[in-house]
């Protein structure tokens, strides 16, 4: 039973002029236990629609979404998930401590567990000093960190995070990344939406790209990174420069020259280097980034 199972999910709504707008069209997606899944797409692609359907905020027009086998929308489906909304807004007349207590009660935790766990998560997201202040006075980043804390409180198995890095400073981003990496190590499943490709590269196992309400591709991040290798940048002593007339070469400094070897020609390069006994100083793969991959898909779709 997958943590998230989405089949043929479609959402059509009417805009203010009563025109039909398709936000999501026949989305199929299976998220397996223990993976970190990135949900990539430009603004308005349908990421939020998908996530809102998963957590029961809106009802789908067709298709179904399940969390641990329970239909999304049923409150019981949300018992084992921790959800962080995009730009969250909490009961801001409460203090962080009071809010976490409310969250804990809603998850059926007992008093002592709530006390213990809220201490832990507040410490984790570095909100301990502000725990007894009303949320009204929090900065955007603090609210976002509290949002992360409330997803962690009941130690769920599945995390659904909508743009978890938004509104955070570099320190906060690093914190979120670290938390995600720790959760992955503990075998938790994370489904998170983003439009920042670097985040995907840093933490994801798999990535899906959504454009215009349609799922474009689902890939393993490691495969993308591997497939994306275009060639290698190799640094060699300048004295050997004459040998690389077949390749793009340019002097790097007085002693070092740099040669770009396309992926297919690597073996022939290595043959020459071996034959001539050249001392290779550095080999670096040059690859297409996920960003380029993403941009290509978006360009293709929107054209």
């Amino acid at each position: 039973m997958n943590p998230i199972s989405i089949e043929g999910l479609t959402k059509v709504y009417r805009d203010k002029k009563r025109r039909r707008v398709t936000a999501l069209q026949g989305l199929d997606l299976q998220i397996e236990a223990g993976e970190v899944f990135g949900f990539l797409g430009p603004n308005g692609a349908g990421k939020s629609t998908t996530i809102k359907t998963l957590v029961g905020q809106i009802q789908s027009t067709a298709g179904c979404a399940k969390l641990f086998g329970i239909a999304a929308g049923d409150p019981r489906a949300r018992r084992r998930i921790g959800y962080l909304p995009e730009n969250p807004s909490f009961y801001d007349f409460l203090t962080a401590k009071e809010y976490l207590s409310l969250v804990g009660r809603c998850f059926g935790m007992d008093r002592s567990a709530i006390e213990r766990e809220s201490e832990r998560v507040l410490e984790l997201v570095d909100l301990h000093p502000a725990a007894k202040r009303k949320i009204q006075g929090y900065s955007k980043g603090m609210v976002q960190r509290l949002g992360l804390a409330q997803t962690l409180l009941h130690d769920p198995d599945l995390f659904i995070l909508d743009e978890p890095m938004s509104g955070l400073d570099p320190l906060g981003r690093a914190l979120v990344k670290q938390v995600m990496i720790d959760l992955r190590r503990r075998g938790k499943t994370i489904f998170f939406s983003t439009h920042v490709t670097a985040d995907v590269e840093a933490v994801c196992d798999r990535v899906a790209v959504l454009v215009g309400g349609k799922l474009q591709t689902v890939n393993r991040v490691s495969e993308l990174l591997e497939k994306g290798i275009e060639g290698y940048v190799i640094q060699l002593p300048s004295a050997t420069a004459g040998l690389w007339s077949d390749f793009e070469a340019r002097p790097q400094s007085d002693d070092v020259c740099e040669v770009f070897v396309p992926r297919g020609k690597f073996n022939s390069f290595m043959a020459i280097a071996g034959r001539e006994g050249v001392e290779v100083q550095l080999i670096e793969p040059r690859r297409r980034s996920i960003e380029q991959f993403f941009l290509e898909i978006v360009r293709r779709e929107t054209e």
């Binding site: 957590v55 905020q57 409150p75 949300r78 807004s89 009961y91 949002g147």
Partner: peptide, 17 residues
Amino acid sequence: ERRYTASIMTLPVSRVI
């Protein structure tokens, strides 16, 4: 409007409750 529901209603709380 204040999007309290976006946080509270995504806990395992039914709308009736």
